[in-house]
């Protein structure tokens, strides 16, 4: 599996605050990757570093084998649709296409025109008068017509209403079916990207909590419910993600590739959202664990 983005120990500091720290991850090529995490997890910072808008404060990042801020940065090969999908309010739709044509050597004029026509955008309309959904579609058109190998989208649907969100993703998926490209899509909601993605990276507090093929993840994570049991007694092949206990009952979310044979357990599958939430709450617990030592001193 080749990678389109590889980062090691990547960190970004704004004044005294680390927006991203010690982030090491690999994004496989040819996939639609969902980069999911709560707000402030560092998703935006990561994508900004990947597209070269920001320079790393620590560690390194390679995109399509090059440094994004370097001399041979892969500018022509990476498309980017920024948060809130910025466009020039005073320029028309047609102006934006001209802008794209003038600023990108690999510009696909036919595709851009066809897309605009299919989306029903009036080329003479000023971008400032487009709806949020239309603006997002225009920004996506710019990102796609550049014919990138890798398309990065930073929370593109966060500001859209459900219908516009759906239309945007339909459109994006259609483009993925047509063009051979890798996509990274960030979102703080799993449900936004669940269907569109086939690979998931969960980022919490700059750390990759889990990364993998979505179907594999769903297949290998199980919820076990049964009489109260100490986690140490579980088989070694069952990696505990979360555990919760009452007086008599234990509920575990485990990752395992082998079937669970113990008849004491009631075994059920997880939805992707449950799976992501399990990993997020695990990180929250880890954070809480780090704190009591301080509180105990008081």
């Amino acid at each position: 599996m080749s990678t389109v983005i590889r980062s090691a120990g990547l960190g970004k500091k704004y004044r005294s605050r680390w927006a991203l720290s010690d982030c090491s991850l690999e994004v496989p090529s040819g996939r639609v990757v969902g980069l999911v995490g709560p707000n402030g997890a560092g998703k935006s910072t990561f994508l900004n570093l990947a597209v070269g808008m920001l320079a790393p404060s620590a560690g390194e990042i390679e995109v399509l084998g090059e440094r994004p801020t370097g001399r041979s940065a892969p500018r022509t090969r990476v498309g980017y649709v920024g948060q809130d999908t910025p466009t020039y309010a005073g320029l028309s739709v047609a102006d934006h296409l001209r802008l794209g044509a003038h600023l990108n050597p690999g510009w696909d004029e036919t595709q851009a025109r066809q897309r605009v026509a299919r989306l029903g955008l009036d080329p003479k309309q000023r971008a400032g008068r487009l709806s949020g959904g239309q603006r997002a579609q225009l920004a996506l058109t710019l990102g796609l017509a550049k014919r990138p190998e890798l398309l990065l989208l930073d929370e593109p649907v966060a500001a859209l209403d459900p219908l516009a969100r759906r239309e945007f993703l339909q459109d994006l998926m259609e483009a993925v079916a047509e063009q051979d490209l890798s996509v990274v899509l960030s979102s703080h909601l799993v449900s936004d990207v669940e269907r569109a993605c086939d690979f998931l990276i969960v980022l919490v507090d700059s750390r990759v909590q889990v990364a993998g093929d979505i179907e594999e993840l769903l297949g290998s994570h199980l919820r076990l419910t049964g009489p109260r049991r100490d986690p140490a007694t579980l088989p070694a092949a069952q990696e505990v993600v979360t555990a919760s206990h009452t007086d008599r009952q234990s509920t575990y979310v485990v990752r395992t590739d082998a079937p669970v044979l113990d008849p004491a357990w009631e075994v059920s599958r997880l939805t992707l959202e449950d799976l992501v939430l399990a990993y997020m709450s695990r990180q929250a617990l880890a954070r809480a664990d780090a704190r009591p030592s301080l509180e105990a001193l008081r």
Binding site: V78, G82, P86, G106
Partner: peptide, 14 residues
């Protein structure tokens, strides 16, 4: 201010 730098600086031109 408008965030359009994120549009124009991520095209192929440095």
């Amino acid at each position: 201010e408008a965030g359009t730098h994120r549009l124009v600086w991520t095209q192929s031109v440095t």
